[in-house]
Amino acid sequence: MNLRNQIATLMRYELRDELRGGEVGFVVLPFGVVALLTIPMAIGIDTPLLQRIGPGIYWSIILLFGVLVTQRHSSLAPPATRDMLRLAGADPVARFAATTLATFLLLLAFEVGAGFATMALYDPALDSWWWLAALLPLTAAGLSMIGTIAGNIASGLEARTSLVPLIVVPIAVPLLLGAAQATEGLRVGAGILRWLLLLAIVDTVLAVAGVLTARSLEESAA
């Protein structure tokens, strides 16, 4: 089986496992929306203020709840499945790509769902909102790659469920700052191309790092 087929096969089964578990759809997304709801409840109906802080709140929620999505593969699948796939001959790079792509799709769905909630609750009045079609995937890609790399680093460790967020959050902060700045640019009508370029560069670096470290991280896993 070539690399592309391995990626497709592994991603298909990973997504199926996740979707049936329902963690993202029934746990992470509803709680993310509840978190978005608590801010207007605490502040009150101050529309200009909510419009101003809406994008920042949205990206904070994406970061914090997105971590839960990214670490799903290190907590949901038992460590023994990792051994099974290694012995079956699954290429570490294919596994990195498959997990990243599965996480990317889940994160993108989470971003879109939380995005609708943000529109309804904060009315951020974005100018040129179609730029979100580039911004959301770029951010989801970066976050999913960070999550997969962190999952590989923490794999086999007893403290992996608490270690993954500790690795993901600091590394993802610059990514989320870029996304927040780009969204603010859309709100005030400023150009966001440089922020998109920054996100694309970060994603490229993460992709190269993920591919180059996939094998050595797997071999060094306990």
């Binding site: 391995q6 089964y13 949901l76 023994a80 051994d83 099974m84 796939l85 012995l87 079956a88």
Partner: peptide
């Protein structure tokens, strides 16, 4: 190898787990 813990994805069916390992 068959270890202590089952090497199975919990939300996949038994048949799907088998197919995944076999096709890889």
């Amino acid at each position: 190898l068959v270890g202590h813990e089952p090497a199975l994805y919990p939300n996949l069916t038994l048949g799907e787990n088998l197919e995944l390992a076999a096709s890889i």
